[in-house]
């Protein structure tokens, strides 16, 4: 493992009953880089993301985060990482401020002022019930929570799902870029190829449960003379997903 790799995935396979969802995937994510993991629905992106955070144990292989096995040392390693799931996982029966207070207790690095400011900026009231937030508000709320701990590693599972076009563009151009500039390592999955093309340093494409491509974005475009969307379409055409 290179010294600069924050995340190293080693021969990870994920199987649900007899269904192989992720097949022998290996990849590395360098410190401070933005890694985009792409694939069609059901290609195994979310499963790989969960393995990467120690939420799920790979059927075989292992995932090292900050050089340690994340399944074994999840609680300690996640003090330095944050996760934004595809859909908000915050309990709907709580108020926004209760969820924020909970996170404050979890992270010694928690920046309460920054979180409050971010929530105010995106129009999320602290007294609102989580269940009363719109889909977009919930996504932004979840992002704010993830950023509140000033993570060294940020894992985003399709973070722009539910955001309108403007918010989505802002997200990619400013938000992620800013994080990368601060040295935060970012791994994200998305279907928004155009959005990710400008910010990702490296891209991996899952096709048929295998990692079909894992290259530097710029080098890839030079070598193939195609846009990311064209490459993705070419690689995944005809590869039916699970869903």
């Amino acid at each position: 493992m290179s010294d600069e790799a924050v995340v190293r995935v080693e021969n990870v396979s994920v199987r649900y009953n007899k269904q192989l969802v992720v097949d022998q995937v290996s990849l590395e994510v360098a410190r401070g880089s933005v890694y985009a993991l792409l694939g069609r629905n059901g290609a195994g992106k979310s499963s790989l993301m969960r393995c990467l955070l120690g939420l799920q144990k790979p059927t075989s292989g292992r995932v090292l985060v900050f050089g340690e096995d994340v399944w074994r040392h999840r609680a300690r390693l996640l003090a330095r990482a944050a996760y934004v799931p595809e859909t908000s996982d915050a309990p709907g029966q709580l108020r926004v401020r209760d969820v924020v207070a909970f996170h404050q207790s979890m992270y010694p690095t928690w920046d309460q002022a920054a979180v409050k400011a971010r929530l105010a900026r995106v129009g999320v009231s602290e007294t609102a019930m989580v269940s009363a937030l719109s889909k977009g508000q919930r996504a932004l709320f979840t992002l704010a929570l993830a950023l509140g701990s000033k993570p060294e590693l940020l894992v985003l599972d399709d973070p722009t799902l539910g955001l309108d076009v403007v918010a989505r563009n802002d997200f990619f151009s400013d938000f992620i870029g800013e994080l990368a500039d601060r040295g935060t390592t970012v791994i994200l999955t998305t279907h928004d190829l155009a959005g990710v093309e400008g910010i990702a340093d490296r891209v991996g494409i899952l096709q048929g449960s295998r990692l079909a491509l894992d290259e530097e974005v710029e080098q890839m475009k030079i070598d193939r003379g195609q846009s990311l969307e064209q490459i993705f379409t070419e690689l995944t055409r005809g590869a039916g997903g699970l869903s």
Binding site: L55, A75, Y83, D89, P91
Partner: peptide, 20 residues
């Protein structure tokens, strides 16, 4: 019920040991 539909990531994606 917190384990339905992957909602348990709210706890497990945080630095929270299962025992805690």
């Amino acid at each position: 019920a917190d384990f339905a539909d992957g909602k348990s990531s709210f706890f497990f994606a945080r630095p929270l040991p299962a025992g805690v």
